[in-house]
Design a binder for these strands. Sequence first.
DNA 1: GACCAGGCGTCTT
DNA 2: AAGACGCATGGT
Length: 284
Amino acid sequence: MDWSYRDGLLEVRLEGPFDPAQTLLCGQCFRWGRTPSGFAGVVRGRALELTVSDGLFMLTGAPQDEVPFFLHYFALDEDYEAIQRRLCRSKRLAACVEQAPGIRILHQEFFEVLLSFIISQNNNIPRIRGIVERLCEGLGEPIGAGQYAFPTPQAVAACSEEELAFLRAGWRAGYLLDAARRVADGRLDPAALAKLPTAAARAVLMETRGVGPKVADCVLLYGLERAEVCPMDVWMKRAMARRFPRGMPRCAQRYAGIAQQYIFDAERADADRSRADAAAVTGL
DNA sequence: GACCAGGCGTCTT
DNA sequence: AAGACGCATGGT
């Protein structure tokens, strides 16, 4: 991989697909947003700005000694053409890839993924983002320019449930507290989970209140690098079963489940389009 | 003002 | 094992 670092700017000559809007606004992460010139987000306590132009990936805010971490975060150290070829062996995933060919699965930090996807349950993306933002502002370390790191497990675990009321997360507050306390005291340890087979890791994750199969799969995929757990596959089946309990109509063949839901969310975030516009995208 | 949102826990059958 | 329901909050 071809990259250079100079004056705080990391430049990478992109190989293979990478679309920052599809990747950062699709709902796999909740702390990235658009700026006039590109995208801004906070990752691992670093305020980052990203622009992609003409196949050149340009990132500011990453210290030089953390370049390998951030290359991996953005999955730029992976052969995505090969990954997509593998995904396309499944017909449904091929449809996902076709609908959102520029998505890369980010390699995010475990605790942030865990709490973010607990927050996500029975919730919508704008509000998820709001709750995550309040969580960071309220309990994360300030990193300058009015921005905050994602809080540590200890910072969350030290709160009472009442003290988390400012999140306005509703009944999820207790779940967040249980999760944070488990991570803080070592009952839930990403290093230990990494050594377990995926099914065993999932079972451990689901011991915490508010972590069911969906949240666990998202944590495995987004926070523990278990690419064989692919919500783009598993959850699509359920979404389709819900939407089409009596079998899929022909028009739904274009409906590529989660990947198109990614598109749906990206479209909404981009252009504030109406539900009807999104329906046109998904064919529903 | 309804309806619903990338679930989950709990209580029924 | 599978279905029904409530859950707190706010976006649309």
